[in-house]
Amino acid sequence: MAKRITIDPITRIEGHLRIDCEIEGGSVTNAWASGQMWRGIETILKGRDPREAWIFTQRFCGV
């Protein structure tokens, strides 16, 4: 029987990351990484003056 482990939150990184893995016979057989936060910056950018796009895209990540 595969065992499932979830690690959430993954710390010491920017953002909200979650890792799920399936373990069978002592080794990882399947794994998923998922971002747990969404702001919709692509949606916010639509229809804006291209000269100000940097204000938004620059703030994807502040690290």
Partner: peptide
């Protein structure tokens, strides 16, 4: 503090 915490997952929570 999520970004600075040494432990993660259940430990952190």
């Amino acid at each position: 503090h999520e970004t600075l915490l040494a432990g993660c997952g259940k430990q952190a929570e």
